[in-house]
Design a protein around this nucleic acid. Structure first.
Lengths: 240, 240
DNA sequence: GGCTTTTATAGTCACTGTGACTATTAATGA
DNA sequence: TCATTAATAGTCACAGTGACTATAAAAGCC
């Protein structure tokens, strides 16, 4: 922050938040998008988001906007994993005026959702990669978010954020395979997850079946650990 | 970005950049700080930074401000490793008005610097950790930056950014030890660095001595690689 | 009932990378 | 000349992982 400060000398900026909200449903990675109703980019898909209000931080604005767009209750939003990605500030990213946007990534379990009230009318979970033209620079924000989430799965226990409160190791493995787009060896994945203290905890009681074939799987819940040491690297390549 | 957009309805924000500029000199990690001349926090140390101008991005503002504060020439600034950290947007982080700040981390080789002209009069490279009270929330920004840089050394080839164009493996190891605050085993460090293709390249010619004792070290320059796979983990603990 | 199919779980084996060392080489200064 | 210092070379055991094979427990079909 410089000296030579004059409260009237700065140029006014609008500050917004943009959200990349990911879910894994039916084995495919989905993103929450809204359809724009106004120019510019009327009718285009865009990331949910909105203005930061005078008395809230960008983080608070992000959670508020997500609540408005999805209709999820406040408790569910509070529990979500929210992560600041980066800030996009190119002067012409919005043709109307100077808008600086703080981008966030959020991970949502694939629970049945209302997606009803308020601004949510035009919001939808869209399979990642099926929409190629997003409004503004949202395509770039979304691909940055996807890369970040993929990298973060490697060295954190974040994958459980995509899962319901109780899940099987097969479902957890499915999260990794879906986000990374690669197949993993099941016994090795299992060994790695169970060897990491605090990643998952087994739930007592009979292995509930949800009605599939094959041997019923044991159920687990997320453990207290956050970091994954050593990391669980994806098969091929570079994380970036 | 929402609909219901009215160019006059948003509240104006000031957008600034704050810079955490690190160097390694004489075996100690240093940070570039400036002494504030005005209230609030007159006489306090603060991170260098300033307003984002109407026609520049936050990245451009960060490089411009660093040039102004240090007197480094444009080419040197362009070559620097700059990294966006995160954005700080708490409503009361600046008591005067609503200021949203995009924080950057930069890595500077410990070259003899002018540090003379322009705003640079009150700028100094201060050993990291010796100043505990920084203006605004700059103390928090600085510790976030330090943590990020430390983590990034593990899985990237960033350490060479702290070094002059030619350096010895001992100097490179010193960067790691200084940033992490831990000692590393020299033969193992050497083996790891040389086993990573593209991390460093040996410079031909006689091993220049800069006048110390012991066997003269071979000289290296930074290679083309960016990522470190597998990572070079620090001895003890968690990266976060 | 016995079969096949499907999925979960258990276990093996070789190889890579690393931590913790020891040994050697090449310079300096007393 | 010799101790000192720092760079470089090499050794050894072990943890973690990739690529497997084998067994267990369910469902669906004849």
């Amino acid at each position: 922050m410089p000296d030579g400060y004059d409260p009237g000398a700065f140029e006014p900026f609008a500050v917004t938040v943009d959200l990349a909200v990911f879910t894994v449903r039916q084995g495919a990675l989905h993103v929450l998008l809204v359809e724009r109703g106004e120019e510019p980019y009327a009718g285009w898909w865009a990331l949910p988001g909105g203005f930061v209000r005078p008395r809230e931080s960008a983080e608070e604005a992000a959670r508020r906007e997500l609540a408005e767009e999805t209709g999820l209750d406040a408790d569910a939003i509070t529990a979500l994993h929210f992560e600041q990605l980066r800030t996009y500030s190119e002067p012409d990213r919005d043709p109307r005026m100077r808008v600086v946007s703080v981008a966030f990534a959020a991970l949502l379990p694939a629970l049945p959702e209302p997606l009803g009230g308020g601004d949510a009318a035009r919001a939808a979970h869209v399979p990642y990669g099926t929409v190629h033209d997003l409004a503004f620079d949202h395509g770039r924000i979304l691909s940055d978010a996807h890369r970040r989430i993929g990298a973060k799965l490697e060295y954190s226990c974040l994958a459980t954020s995509f899962c319901p409160p109780e899940f099987t190791l097969g479902e957890l493995q499915g999260v990794y395979e879906t986000v990374w787009g690669t197949a993993l060896d099941r016994p090795n994945f299992r060994r790695k997850v169970l060897a990491t203290p605090g990643f998952v905890e087994q739930v007592d009681g009979p292995p509930r079946r949800s009605g599939g074939r094959g041997k019923p799987a044991a159920r687990y819940r997320a453990g207290p650990a956050n970091a994954l040491h050593p990391p669980l690297l994806r098969p091929e390549g570079r994380p970036e």
